[in-house]
Structures are given as C-alpha cells and as structure tokens.
C-alpha cells in the first residue's frame, strides 16, 4: 500500500470485507514512507512487478502460500480468488 495512492484507499474496504467474510489474514505494509517495507517489496518483487505490468506498483497483494501476486485495482471476486486458491 502507499499512503498517497488513491487506488490503495479505494481498495481498503475490499480488503476489510474479505478478511471479515473469510477470516483470511492480510498484512498491510506501507511502502512509500517505510523503507524497510519498501526493501521487502523489492526483495519479493519479481512476481509483483510481473503482475503490475513490468514495474513495482501499489496496491499489490502477494500470497505467501502460493507465491502469486495481483496488482492495481482489484475487485472483491478477484481478491477472494487470489486469497483462497
């Protein structure tokens, strides 16, 4: 997530709905103002940048279990599929 990223703000309710309805745990990491989080994102960045179309972007979601990432605006259905597959 990025603090000044509008899509991140718009995505937050979708994430909250998913965690409330499924119990899936999603840890939010702010990456523009927290360099440690940014470093982590760069470290695991290959799958994220692929999902983002070549560059690292936010909002990004990385499933640590499957290694799959999704990036950018996301619907509830897509997020749920990513989290539960």
């Amino acid at each position: 997530m990025g603090r000044e990223c509008p899509h991140c703000r718009q995505t937050r309710p979708v994430v909250e709905k998913l965690t409330a309805e499924t119990g899936v745990e999603i840890t939010e990491l702010e990456v523009w103002h927290n360099e440690e989080n940014a470093r982590y994102m760069r470290k695991v960045g290959d799958s994220i940048s692929k999902a983002c179309g070549g560059d690292l972007g936010v909002p990004s979601f990385l499933n640590e279990r499957t290694g799959k990432a999704i990036c950018g605006r996301v619907t509830y259905e897509n997020l749920k599929k990513w989290a539960l597959e």
Partner: peptide
C-alpha cells in the same frame, strides 16, 4: 475526481521532498 487529483499531487510533492523527484505515488522506486 478532484480529491483524487489533489491526493496524487500531495503524494508527488512528498516524493519530491523525500526522493528528489515527483515519482508516481502508485509506483515504487527500484
């Protein structure tokens, strides 16, 4: 969405202050 435009402007100015360039607030520097 003017509020969104303002949010992006604020983000870019933050990036200018912290990173020296008006990077997109929805991308991450490498």
């Amino acid at each position: 969405d003017r509020e969104m435009v303002r949010t992006l402007a604020v983000g870019e100015l933050e990036n200018m202050k912290n990173k020296g360039f008006k990077y997109c607030p929805c991308r991450i520097t490498t």
